Structure formats: C-alpha cells, structure tokens
Computed example of a mutant assay.
Amino acid sequence: MSKKTIAYLLMGVLLLALGLTGCGGQQPAGGGEKAAVLKVGTEPSFAPFEFQGENDKEYAGFDMDLIRAIGKQMGMQVEIQSMGFDGLIPALEAGNIDVVISGMTITDERVQKVSFSKPYYKSGLTIVTKQGNDQIKGFGDLAGKRIGVQIGTTGADEAKKIKDAQVREFNTPPEAFMELKAGGVDAVINDKPVNDYYMKEAGSKDAQQVGEPLTSEDYGIATAKKNTELSEKINKALDELKKNGEYDKIYEKWFGKKP
C-alpha cells in the first residue's frame, strides 16, 4: 500500500470521526434533542400565585402555571427554585437563575436592577384586620398602628411611609396573618389577590378586609438586564398565550373569572 493511499485512508477516518462527533452533539443519549432549561426563582408562599400544599411536591398557583406555559411555548424545560423574596433579584443578578416570577410588582427601583416583561397581572395593596375591628377602615387609619408585612414587598415600602407605624416584617404572608390572628399586629398590608385568597380559604371567620386598594400595581416577569434576548422571547410567548386563549384559561382557573 502506497503512502498516498494510507494518507487518503487516514483522512477518511478523521472526517468520519468528526462527522460522528457532530451527530453525537445534536442527538444526546436517550434519544431526541434535549430542551434548554429555564431556571425560575420564586418565593412559594404567595397564594394563589405560588404556593406548595403540605402533600404536594410541585409548586402550584397562577404564576407557576403561567411560567410553565411560557416555557412550553418557548420550547424550554422549566425548573423552579424556592428562595426568599428578598433574595430573588440578587440571585438573578448573580446568574444563579434566569427568571423571577413571584407576584413581583414592577417598580422604578427594581427596573434599575432588572428587566421586566410586559405586565401580566394588575394588582393593588389592601388591608386585613381582625374581625370586629372598627378603628381601622382604610389606610388613613393606620398611623401609629402595628402593621404586619412581607419583607421586600411594596406593602412593606408603603407601611414604612405611615406616620408612627410600628412595622413588623415577615418572610411570608402566612406568618403575617398568623401574627394578626394572635394579636401581635393590628393590620396586615398585602396585595389584594393574596388577601382575597386568604379570606376565601382561611381568614373569613376571624379577619376582615377593609378599605379601597391603595395602589394600582402591575406584576412582571424579571430577567437580568443583560439578557435582552430572553426578555424578548418571554414577551413573545406571553403575547402568543393571550392570543391562543391559554392565558385566559389559566387566569380563570385561579381567579374564577376572565381577565
């Protein structure tokens, strides 16, 4: 066999090996192309948006169904991670997660740190007091009162503006509601849908929701400032879900009415 023939054979083997390597990268073991993973951060104690029942393994709620539908629309596998609400944006900035969906209000302060999707839900702040409390009828009656809030939320921000208020911050809304029931605070300020859900599920016997909503707030899905491509894809998927009716189905499932 000549040296030229040997060279041709070696070149053929090399090209074949390169071709197989390329195929192997596109078809991972197990068959089929592996979907990209969307790492989602949430604080799962904000029913009906995100929560976990005692016997449930998966997180449930409006936000959870929505982000899974968005992931499916984008062709991505959704992985949800639980963390404290005040740690969500730092985790996003550090690159530990790709997305935050956690009943997060779009605010000027947060926009300085992260990018938000188009608003997907309109909310507002309301007050819950103990049943029979006739001293607090609205936000104007909260001066000097003991107020329970969730740490890192717009409810906490607004409570701190109230004159002489004694603001107590809790990690989750249920902890604030428990403190209200125990008499440790006079009122709880939280997002209206969360207060509505608490009243419906557990609080109507010993609590009451009073006054008109203080604010009108938009919830958004947060992404890192530098990840403009992902933000655009999320907005596109959200638009598609609204067009094909899937968003309406999810909304009606959790709020009992169409948006």
Rank of each mutant, 00 (worst) to 15 (best):
G22Q: 13
A36I: 07
G31S: 00
A176S: 10
M104L: 10
T21S: 13
V37T: 14
N96W: 05
G152D: 09
I221C: 08
G148P: 03
E229S: 14
K72F: 06
P213Q: 06
S45H: 13
E158W: 11
T172A: 12
P193A: 01
Q77R: 15
A69H: 12
A29F: 13
Q27T: 12
D191G: 10
Q26A: 13
L16T: 04
G144W: 06
V210T: 10
K253D: 01
T172Q: 11
K163T: 11
K181M: 10
K249N: 10
N195H: 12
V128G: 08
Y198I: 05
C23E: 11
N96L: 08
K145L: 01
L38T: 07
G256D: 05
V78T: 13
I101C: 05
A176L: 09
I97R: 03
E50M: 08
A222W: 03
T5L: 14
K249S: 13
G103V: 02
V128S: 12
F49V: 01
G132F: 00
A159T: 08
P44W: 03
F177E: 02
I147L: 10
A36K: 13
F46H: 07
L14D: 06
M64F: 07
D56G: 00
F170Q: 06
E58D: 13
A202L: 12
D98H: 09
L214Y: 07
D157T: 15
E217H: 06
A143E: 07
G41D: 08
G87E: 13
F170A: 09
L238M: 12
K161T: 14
N244H: 05
E50H: 06
N195V: 14
D108K: 13
E232S: 14
G203L: 05
K192C: 02
G148H: 03
I80N: 03
S2T: 13
D56Q: 12
A187Y: 06
K118I: 07
I162A: 02
E93N: 09
M64P: 08
M1P: 02
I127M: 05
S2A: 11
Y247R: 09
A222L: 03
E217K: 07
Q208K: 14
D218N: 15
M104I: 04
K4A: 15
D206G: 06
V99Y: 09
D206I: 02
T223V: 15
E58G: 00
S216I: 12
K192G: 01
E50F: 04
T5A: 15
D206S: 10
K57I: 03
Q166L: 14
E43Y: 09
A237P: 06
A156C: 05
P90K: 07
N190T: 15
I151H: 11
A17T: 09
D56S: 14
Y59G: 00
L125Y: 05
G75F: 06
A187H: 01
G256C: 01
E232P: 00
K257E: 15
Q77F: 11
I80G: 04
A17S: 06
E169S: 11
Y8D: 04
S45Q: 09
Q26H: 10
K39Q: 12
K249E: 13
F62H: 09
P193K: 00
S216N: 12
I101S: 02
Q208L: 12
K145T: 02
K34I: 08
D196S: 04
K257H: 15
D218K: 11
I89R: 10
L38M: 14
